[in-house]
Design a binder for these strands. Structure first.
Lengths: 335, 335
DNA sequence: TTCACCCGTCGAAGCGCTTCGACACTCCCG
DNA sequence: CGGGAGTGTCGAAGCGCTTCGACGGGTGAA
């Protein structure tokens, strides 16, 4: 193992000079800096993370808390995680993966043992038990998702409330008068998952504003659930012509179910999804959708964290405005 | 932050005694140990990972290299990752997530900076560029997947060769004489991904052994690809009655495609999948399958790693025997 | 020319922990 | 009753690094 004293000897300077040359915390002459850098390169030196003096310094590791609860769509969550890792690496950080069960305990452990020096927290609930802990921790953290009381925290998310409204606005503009939201699985709402709840709020508010008849249905996944919800919608709201779906794995099965029931999309029924663009674009019918920008959210979260680490001020909540892309699944209300 | 000296003072012993009491590396009287443990609990002490003396010791972190290349099925990979994290936590380790691009560079960095003290490597190719690096590293590692030359490494995987054979054996026993393998996307084979290649070998070997007509087709995912491969199979092998599918996201679309073409499963065509049990069980038609035990593999990998860390000898390759479960997608050859 | 100041560098102290080598006991055998 | 062998505990050294204070030499203003 090559250590800082090796580099120092090789460059003909003292270890402290090497340290300063690398950290830039004190002025070092260009000449010396160059020699140090050359030595570092030649010897392949890397500062050992767990060196004593480093205790005070940052560990260049950030922890990512991904609960992986039931009802979440795994590819989307993974997309988030990958984008966080990628962004973190771009800032010289590594990422420690914390999963469910570890949720609270893990955050505490990682903070107190000094393993990580920052936290990204996913799958945030409106009343999240992790919030008090996060507020009390000396480590900076960023939530992906906005809880009910974001005071003292830093959050970033798609503005799901506005996303819900945007979908309804779109359907209303096309003339639809009766709409429904097919949501995530029930357990997601039971947990009071922030983004799911906010989408419902936005959907309902916009439907009321436009004076539409509306209904909200949490829904599980799979063919059976799709068939059941499709039948139920047609039965309970015979005038239904507009549906918003916030449930990635249900999209294709739901399209199939409607088709089997003789409902054509978009001729008889307009369907708008809230999901990542690739999902919407590769569905059986290209779906008009409000995109969930998972990659951008992960990247933003890391940027905010890096800024916090450097002591810069950051906004409490960053809400990305929703963008609706029209594809083949929506059209004017049939007569 | 509570440090070891605080605990020592609180327990009325010296810091070194606390250290020994916690590590068990020297005999400590029950009485003293109890007092130390009480103090630890009361003060909420946790040893700081990055303390100087710890440089020599383990970091209790293992790195998980998940390339996330195209063509891999995200939920399965995620399942692996989660099981590795869970198992690692059970052994008191945390997990650092390394992704693509980081593949080689990341492994080196993590090893040299002492961030992790062990490695789990996924998505192994027959000739994997990471192998020389792994062999040269002072850190123990375990591969999930068996490369062409596993000497000096530790690997664990499902025996995909035997899995391929088992599927063919099953079809042959049911009387099928013409079979096909619908595999993973082409890029997976181009990369010479170990498990995919081995499955093909097993499939082909067993087909030859049984003197069956056989064909192998890598295949992309999605409805279009499913329809295309279904048509092609029926065209090129009119006598085809048995198909093995090694491509999770293609399963449902392929079943649909056959149905649309008027081919009934299992009356006209028997279909065997190689995939995790939940995928097989929740497909449109419950599928006869050889299970890919992702959770068990992740757990095994961690166990092996922990044993290596403790200096215990471990087998070079652990190949789990495949198990075939009959469900509703296979039946006797039609007359 | 002198003095204050700044720049670049160094040595030494210290981070929180582990570990080595004592040291003081106790116990048991001869 | 003496001495050897364990036990259990402690102090001190050291891990690789950062950081503080200091120092020498150059520079510019007075």
């Amino acid at each position: 193992m090559v250590k800082i004293t090796d580099v120092a000897r090789h460059a003909g300077v003292s270890p402290s000079t090497v340290s300063y040359a690398l950290s830039g915390k004190r002025p070092i002459s260009d000449e010396t800096r160059r020699r140090v850098q050359a030595a570092v390169r030649e010897l392949g030196y890397r500062t050992h993370v767990r060196a004593g003096g480093a205790v005070g310094a940052g560990s260049r590791v950030l922890a990512l808390a991904v609960p992986m609860r039931s009802g979440v769509h795994v590819p989307v969550v993974t997309q988030f995680a990958v984008s966080v890792v990628t962004a973190a690496r771009a800032h010289g950080h590594d990422v420690l993966l914390l999963t469910q069960g570890e949720g609270e305990e893990g955050i505490g452990r990682v903070a107190e043992t000094g393993l990580a020096d920052a936290l990204v927290v996913m799958d945030v609930q409106l009343q999240d038990p992790r919030l008090p802990l996060l507020r009390s921790l000396p480590l900076p953290s960023v939530l992906i998702g906005v809880p009910a009381e974001p005071d003292g925290l830093t959050c970033v998310d798609l503005d799901f409330g506005a996303a819900g409204e945007l979908c309804v606005d779109h359907l209303a503009r096309l003339g639809h008068r009766t709409v429904a939201l097919v949501g995530s699985p029930p357990e997601v709402y039971v947990r009071r998952t922030a983004f799911a709840r906010r989408l419902v709020q936005g959907f309902t508010a916009a439907a009321d504003r436009h004076r539409l008849r509306s209904a909200v249905h949490p829904c599980g996944t799979g063919r059976g659930a799709a068939r059941a919800i499709a039948e139920r919608l047609l039965r309970e709201q015979p005038a239904l012509t507009g549906v918003v779906v916030h449930n990635e794995p249900l999209l294709d099965p739901l399209i199939d179910a409607f088709e089997e029931l003789g409902v054509r999309i978009p001729e008889d029924l307009s369907l708008t999804a809230v999901c990542p663009t690739p999902v919407a674009a590769s569905a059986r019918i290209p779906l008009t959708s409000v995109t969930v920008p998972s990659t951008e959210l992960g990247t933003r979260a890391v940027h905010l964290l890096v800024r916090k680490l450097s002591g810069a001020p950051v906004p409490q909540a960053t809400l990305l405005p929703p963008r609706l892309t029209e594809r083949a699944s929506t059209g004017p209300r049939p007569d």
